[in-house]
Design a protein around this nucleic acid. Sequence first.
RNA 1: GCCAGUGUAGCUCAGUGGUAGAGCAACGGUUUCGUAAACCGUAGGUCGUCGGUUCAAUCCCGACCACUGGCUCCA
Length: 619
Amino acid sequence: MQNADNAGGLEAAKTEVQRKSLEQRGQMDELMRVRHSCAHILATAVLRLWPDALLDIGPPTAEGFYYDFDLPSHRFTPEDFPRIEEEMRKVIKENQVFERSVVTRDEAREHFAKLGQRFKVERLGDIPEGEAISFYRNGEFVDLCAGPHVMRTGNVKPSAFRLLKVASAYFRGNEKNPQLQRLYGTAFKAKEDLEVWVHQQEEAKRRDHRRIGAEMGLFAFDSEYVGPGLPLWLPKGTVLVEELERLAKETEFAAGYVRVRTPHLAKEKMYLTSGHLPYYAESMFAPMEFKEAEADEVASRYYLKAMNCPHHHRIFAAEPRSYRDLPLRLAEYGTCYRYEQSGELFGLMRVRSMQMNDAHIYLTPEQFAAEFNAVNEMYLKYFKIFGLDRYLMRFSTHDPAKLGQKFVNEPELWKQTEDMVRDVLKSSGINYVEVPNEAAFYGPKIDVQVWSAIGREFTIATNQVDFAVPKRFGLVYRDRDNSERTPLCIHRAPLGTHERFIGFLIEHYAGNFPLWLAPEQVRVLTIGDEPRLEEHAKGLVAELRSQGVRAEADLTTNPIKGKIQEAETARVHTMLVLGARDLDAGVVSVRLHGKGPQGAKPRADIIASIVDAIRTRAA
RNA sequence: GCCAGUGUAGCUCAGUGGUAGAGCAACGGUUUCGUAAACCGUAGGUCGUCGGUUCAAUCCCGACCACUGGCUCCA
């Protein structure tokens, strides 16, 4: 059995970022052996119950393990789990030895061909010539496998593994290949570890942005009237959107960006020129087609934009440009539409309409290193504000063998920009992994990978170098020597899209946003209904609002316990409790969400500290 | 898009081949209270949609839609 098809280094790096709690690499290796062995035990059990099952592969993963089967005679359902788990426990109880043997390619092929295990035969072809081909046997079960394993099936604790879900997966991950049935499970070294993990999973579900979004009234979907994947931002979610925009605008202004605004659609010619049509057509909403004039022979086609770059390129082209204008940094929170496949939609993390923290920087090759570094520093600045530390930068580079095919034929530019990007990453001491052959066709790129509460991986931000598309649009600037030159372009979106970034932030903070982001920053809670209390509460709210604080008052006649409960449930950041006692003393009692009472403070001090925390975007 | 699962009140969930319930939320009233829920009452559902089986369907069957878990893809 082999590793999953992914690049091994990338998997390992991801695992490391995801599972920082598992400190020692040695521990991880042992855990991986347990999981890998458990996958073999699963396959052993499945073959006992369904002897006609065909096997593909069954690797360990960061969360557990899986095994892929082709079994037309039976559809796995969760109801099969008890039976399969019971059989697995028998295999464990038999305490079979995991026996490694090295075989020749012909022996291996003959072994699996005889059993009709065609996927195994095909996988055999993946093993490079000259590399050892090894079998692992436990009891009657033999698998093509590089190992390693635990010593015996009995080393897997019967109480420390669990089957989790049935899923499907394409053979070799290619949707043109047959779909296999995948059984997911997890295994740990000890029962307690499994219990901890199960508990963590439940906690993670509570953090799920879809759940918190509904609880807090941040966003909603209306598939029937608006459409799937088209989120509606409710008032409280809109606060998040606008606070992020404010942060982006301030940061970009300080960094010398200028803002532009562009329409949500463009004519077909735009995307023929950019090269997105027909290549990207599947991911775009179908065009609007109509005749602009009665006499027109041919209908015009307008597409909703799936990206902002072409519009920005046309802004670059709208005026003559001199080298003195560069770098020209055009920023826009542009709204894009992508027709994602229905099965790919996922809460806010994967939607069909999105607003992107986009900017395109047009510059000379000489300006590239400094500018790219500045962009990178902006990323780090943002990550610091959000306390974002579990991320992985994925640096995608080209493959020189594919120049002129998959990658634009500019070997010098590739080398130059990749070296510069690599230097920037290295010198900033960032956790990154380099993945060859994954660059965009127009240049190298950096994606920032993060994980949702339930463990799904997402690109949260992207930063790309482009030395091809400006040429397609005929973009030029007049250089010092009066010659016309084509600029390089950096595409960057450190805050990704509002949808995905906020989806991520909701989970990152579990809905407990820092003061500057909190939809409701302050709620004043009165005790009793003396008229002077209501008056003071209203005055306090008015004063806070006049300083830009999102404050509300709860003047209902509910008991204070009830008001507190409601405010805590609504995740109001700061609660200001106002009773006759406080009023007489000229103070307000402060309570912070999730942190309990903080004591009474003079009214003016409280207002000042709230305003200051918001201004500095304190964590 | 593909494979599988799910769909009962705004939310969380019961329930039955004979035309539906609970808690919370909402609304109305009572209560005047010091840090995570005071009390009483009212209203709210073509049981996802459409079709089929049946004397009768929310329940059985089928199709579709949406969502969920994966795969592929991706900000």
